[in-house]
Nucleic acid binder design. Sequence first.
DNA 1: ACGGCTAATATGTATAGACATTTAGTCGAC
DNA 2: GTCGACTAAATGTCTATACATATTAGCCGT
Lengths: 241, 241
Amino acid sequence: MAPATVPALALHQRIRSDIEAKILSGEWGPGHRIPFEHELMAQYGCARMTVNKVIAGLAAAGLIERRRRAGSFVAQPRIQSAVLQIPDIPQEVTGRGAEYGYELIFRRRRRTGPRDPLASELPAGTDVLDLRCRHLADGKPFALEDRLIALAVVPEAAETDFSTVPPGSWLLGHVPWTEAEHRISAVGASLREARELELPRGAPCLCLERRTWRGADTITYARQLFRGDHYNLAARFSPQG
Amino acid sequence: MAPATVPALALHQRIRSDIEAKILSGEWGPGHRIPFEHELMAQYGCARMTVNKVIAGLAAAGLIERRRRAGSFVAQPRIQSAVLQIPDIPQEVTGRGAEYGYELIFRRRRRTGPRDPLASELPAGTDVLDLRCRHLADGKPFALEDRLIALAVVPEAAETDFSTVPPGSWLLGHVPWTEAEHRISAVGASLREARELELPRGAPCLCLERRTWRGADTITYARQLFRGDHYNLAARFSPQG
DNA sequence: ACGGCTAATATGTATAGACATTTAGTCGAC
DNA sequence: GTCGACTAAATGTCTATACATATTAGCCGT
């Protein structure tokens, strides 16, 4: 029987990982000119389309920059860019083996005012759903969430009572979004927050604020407050994704 | 004079943005099968390589998934993945128009022990440089930094005194890294930390821990403590990069 | 009804060539 | 020398074709 053909990475994958290895090992530092397409073509004995596809892919991934006539260069590493995984809270809780619990504290429909967190995005008087809820892990308070949902953009939210489904999970499954913004800070728990999280007043909490858009429309604002002693955000990453 | 030829996006760009628009507008929701290559080929009157390149690019970007024989499908949006920009501190401070100041609190060379933050990465007894420093904005304490640098991997660090250059900036410019891990949490300032940051004891601070590797070697560990009232991390991002 | 074979289908990979576009670098005129 | 125009070099885009490979629908026999 003929020897089984080795899976042998596709040629373009081999070329790509060769180049990535050179870059990631530091052998080709930032600014280094990588071989011209015709050189790689000769080196690997393949057509230009093949190396072109590879290098275009590396450029799309931000690993290299291309300049006509000049060549292709290893990109300057971006200062620090981390891909933070921020799953929704039920998933986060069950992911650590705890039992997830959820409580709706209030749900009301109102119009935005001039001091709302969304005031800069939504004109005052916009119809929103205003929710507050509490996430529990093994029966103990884990996070508080304040949430505003723009009803003009997500009218179905008005018919959802959110007494059993957390708004974050519901929105993820119902509304496609195109852009979001996070803000992460450390704050001391207010009197009310401390009570709702069963912490002493002023206890350090991780505060995650998120605004989400769909095209030009603001969809939602969320402020999640996590017990500092029970939660942290972790991210593992490479220089350029 | 003949009308100037409109810049007219390259065909593959037009195809790509057409498809992206359909996906981002929600018209083609997650799981929707996008037209087969041969259909797009007919629709745009082009060669298969052209649509193939487009769709392969969308797949590489995570916007769609491809299954042989079945077709190409709009991907489920990934839970939440944010690209966090975390520039080094001098840049951060001057970027907000404040004057940056830096103070080295101590610098000593020692061997790691069993309870070091790097204990799981470095065997006890590894030679490290142990630094503590303080970052100031307009003369006021802004952040505290504890830093360990593995001297076996970065021997040049032993000859650097770090009395004027922050270790983070120095490392960024001297050592290529291949992987890093962040951990973001909220903590209350200890007595010493409170004194060094000129805060009341227990004041909420944002704590950013970072471990950095080069290949299999651990390069450095940093723990940066920011005044909660003066600092937050912000990120703006799209569903799939 | 069930299980396995087969053939059709859509993507995956690659080629060789063509022409367009941008721009670094050269060379010449002033 | 300086500023321009020109040229050649490298990437950008696209075509038409070919064959490989994975997957599944459907056929077929039991």
